[in-house]
């Protein structure tokens, strides 16, 4: 039985700026199965959000999907009309964002904003929609939901606002929820609660989740499978267990080393040396070679493919390719 919910194939998203074409997403394959939680990890600017925005088809000018397919079950989203896509958004795929403080409209009550999502996709009366909204508020842990229904966003803390966003995203029982750095703007204590809530909702409704984050710690806590992304490409993918037990890509090592550990006291956090390259002038060969400690001659000349090293573990690095390694660099 094929229980694939989302299948992204060869996705290329580019920004046509005055300085040139920015390949923000450069041939990405991602698969998400029903009920599964998939992490998408990478430093800021590596194309995670634009991958999600491509799926949602919310890219704004000058960005555009130029190639690829995005399958939601048996429909290619890139082939849908605007109208059909509106029926998908918020209904079959929903999304929550990094900025809980600004993601809700300041001039409408939170109740009205959640009701709006309900009434957009379900044929219910105002009263029924209100019931549904209050019910979801109760389940996402909004205290006094009947009263809070009439609150404006500015009367809520960041954590509560992100809860409202989650409620709004879950209220139509989507088969997929994309969470774009949902806890980056929040305190660590709130972060744990929000991740827990997402997990709860996921279990309760069987929703698949794409968790976008720059923190592998979040992935460890909330995901089954993970894609590591760098400069628009997937660098490594594996089950979360595999990634932590047998990390293979040098970039993944870097990310693992930069997870803050509560058990150790460090003066400063480890960071990967160098900066994310400018997408307009990517280095020749492996796009990580300018920052890689293990770079070899071949890395500056050829671009590695995504090599399957068994057990559903794939790595885009020559170190993982036996033939290259045995041929003597």
């Amino acid at each position: 039985m094929d229980d694939t919910i989302l299948k992204i194939r060869g996705l290329k998203t580019q920004f046509f700026t005055s300085k040139g074409v920015v390949p923000a997403v450069d041939g990405v394959d991602v698969t998400v199965r029903a009920g599964e939680a998939v992490g998408l990890v990478g430093e800021s600017g590596c194309g995670k959000s634009m991958t999600a925005m491509s799926v949602m088809q919310l890219l704004q000018h000058p960005g555009r999907v130029v190639e690829g397919e995005i399958w939601l079950k048996d429909r290619n989203l890139l082939k849908l009309s605007k109208r059909e896509m509106c029926d998908v958004r918020g209904n079959e795929i929903s999304m929550i964002f990094q900025e809980p403080m600004t993601s809700l409209n300041p001039v409408f009550t939170i109740g009205r904003q959640v009701m709006e999502a309900v009434r957009q996709h379900q044929d219910v009366s105002k009263e029924e929609a209100k019931e549904i909204a209050i019910d979801i508020f109760r389940r996402i842990g909004i205290p006094e939901p009947e009263k809070r229904f009439y609150s404006y966003p500015h009367q809520l803390s960041g954590g509560l606002r992100q809860r409202v966003m989650i409620g709004m995203a879950m209220v139509c029982n989507p088969s997929l929820m994309i969470c774009d750095e949902p806890t980056t703007a929040l305190d660590v204590t709130i972060e744990a609660q929000i991740l827990y809530l997402i997990k709860e909702m996921q279990k309760e409704k069987g929703t698949a989740v794409v968790m976008i984050t720059h923190n592998l710690g979040v992935v460890a806590e909330s995901c089954d499978y993970v894609y590591v992304m760098y400069a628009g490409k997937i660098m490594e993918e594996a089950s979360v267990y595999e990634i932590f037990e047998h990390p293979t890509h040098p970039y993944t090592f870097g990310l693992l080393n930069s997870i803050p550990k509560t058990t150790e006291v460090k003066d400063h956090l480890f960071t990967i040396r160098g900066l994310v390259p400018n997408l307009l002038s990517l280095p020749k060969g492996c796009r990580f070679c300018t920052r890689c400690d293990k770079a070899m001659q071949i890395c500056t000349e050829y671009e590695p493919d995504l090599y399957d090293i068994g057990g559903g573990h794939k790595v885009r690095c020559f170190l993982a390719n036996k033939e290259v390694m045995e041929s003597g660099k």
């Binding site: 999304m95 964002f97 409209n105």
Partner: peptide, 10 residues
């Protein structure tokens, strides 16, 4: 950002 949210709602 809330305009993006409104679009994401469908």
């Amino acid at each position: 950002d809330y305009i993006r949210t409104a679009r994401a709602k469908g």
